[in-house]
Simulated scan of single mutants.
Amino acid sequence: MSDAFRSGLARSPFASIEPGATPTGKDVWAALGGKRGVVESLLPGLIFLVVYTLTQSLWWSVLTPLAASAAFILARLFRKSPIQPALIGLVGVALSAFVAIVSGRPENNFVLGLWVNAISLVVIVGSFAFRRPIIGVIAGILVNDDQWHHNRARFAMASVATLLWAAMFGLRLLVQVPLYLAGEPAVQALATAKLVMGIPLYGLTLWLTWLLLRAVYRPHAASPE
């Protein structure tokens, strides 16, 4: 679940939109969970890649990321920090490990992520059928703007932003599905692609989305047309 909208959009910079404010990288960094959130998102996948490359062992490759995810929770408990982000990560890693072990196929460690991307893409594209681009819906809820779809500028920007997310999920599937179908010989390439197209691509998409929507939530664009 580290690749989809996850909890990032729910606590994204949209929640702090203020008319006339200028976007900063610090706010987008916070939306990604800060340094700890980025590490907790990237490390399990990196551990899988390194361990699998060195050992070619399915069990070690899926259990070591699981141990790391459990360690994140213990670290948060020790520091008396909220454990929900780490707990969500642990559930995702555990489910992926379970599927891979039961099937005996290391590439299945990534199959749940592919399904999340596919379902997310379907939901995003489907939102256009109701003329409610989903990024506009989310931003409207977070900034208490239930008339955004009547404002041409906001609707247009929400549409472009929603297409950005569709492109992100579509690109992930375009690259990763063939690697998954290639089976065990492509596991390392698949793990690498998932890392590169995970948090880095998610962060870039979030940043561009924020820039687009921030542009229309300013005093001069406040009154619906």
Rank of each mutant, 00 (worst) to 15 (best):
M1K: 15
S2T: 15
S12T: 04
S12G: 12
P13V: 14
P13S: 14
A15V: 00
A15G: 09
S16W: 05
I17D: 14
K26M: 13
W29A: 09
W29Y: 14
A31Q: 10
L32R: 08
G33T: 05
G33E: 01
G33Y: 08
V38M: 06
V39W: 03
S41G: 06
L42A: 03
P44K: 10
G45A: 09
L46M: 07
L49P: 03
L49D: 05
Q56K: 07
W59C: 05
W59N: 08
T64I: 04
L66A: 08
A68G: 01
F78L: 14
K80A: 03
A86W: 09
A86Q: 00
L87R: 11
L87D: 00
G89L: 01
G89W: 09
A94G: 11
S96A: 04
F98A: 14
V102T: 15
E107C: 02
N109Q: 13
F110A: 03
G113S: 03
S120I: 09
L121W: 08
L121C: 02
L121R: 04
V125H: 02
V125Y: 05
V125Q: 02
S127Y: 02
F130S: 03
R131Y: 06
I134S: 05
G140A: 07
L142C: 03
N144C: 11
N144M: 10
D145R: 04
Q147H: 11
H150I: 15
R154K: 07
F155V: 12
A156D: 10
A156H: 04
A158L: 03
S159G: 12
T162V: 08
A166G: 08
A167L: 13
M168R: 15
F169V: 14
V175D: 04
V175A: 01
V177K: 04
P178A: 08
L179V: 00
A182L: 00
E184F: 07
P185K: 02
Q188H: 15
Q188W: 11
L190P: 03
T192M: 12
A193G: 03
A193W: 12
K194E: 13
K194G: 14
P200H: 12
L201G: 05
L204R: 13
W207C: 04
W210I: 05
L212E: 06
A215H: 15
A215I: 11
P219A: 12
A221P: 04
A221W: 14
A222L: 13
P224S: 13
P224E: 06
